[in-house]
């Protein structure tokens, strides 16, 4: 049986890689990928703690909810990215600096 510390270390490393991707990338799609990495790290935390909860199964249930939330976020985010690309002809967040036409 693998102790919970191993899961927490792996999830912390994946989370920080996601933070780096969000801060350093100049492409909106790669920023979304960074958000996906962070959500995956938190799902790994949920699942690792869920093993101690055989009464309520709260961790696994909310891990499934987090997966659904991530899918909805990606669908709306990609629609917005495509609209922004159609308008500005770029998806670099540095160049997108005005709201009105």
């Amino acid at each position: 049986m693998i102790s919970i510390t191993h899961f927490l270390i792996v999830s912390a490393i994946i989370f920080c890689i996601g933070v780096y991707a969000i801060l350093a990338k100049r492409n909106a799609i790669m920023i979304l990928v960074g958000i996906e990495l962070m959500i995956n790290a938190s799902i790994l935390n949920f699942v690792a703690f869920a093993r101690y909860d055989s009464v309520n199964y709260g961790g696994q249930v909310f891990a499934l909810f987090a997966i659904v939330l991530a899918a909805a976020a990606v669908a709306v985010g990609l629609a917005i990215i495509l609209n922004v690309y159609r308008h500005y002809k770029t998806i670099d967040p540095k160049n997108i600096n005005e709201l009105k036409d």
């Binding site: 693998i2 699942v47 869920a50 093993r51 891990a63 997966i67 899918a71 990606v74 990609l78």
Partner: peptide, 28 residues
């Protein structure tokens, strides 16, 4: 996830992420 004994979460991860989210990302 399988090593934390969450087999249904692992299958859902493969179905939703690899089947849906990643295809959307590649399309965009």
């Amino acid at each position: 996830y399988l090593f934390a004994l969450a087999d249904f979460v692992a299958i859902t991860q493969i179905l939703v992420y690899v089947g849906g989210v990643l295809i959307l990302l590649i399309f965009a």
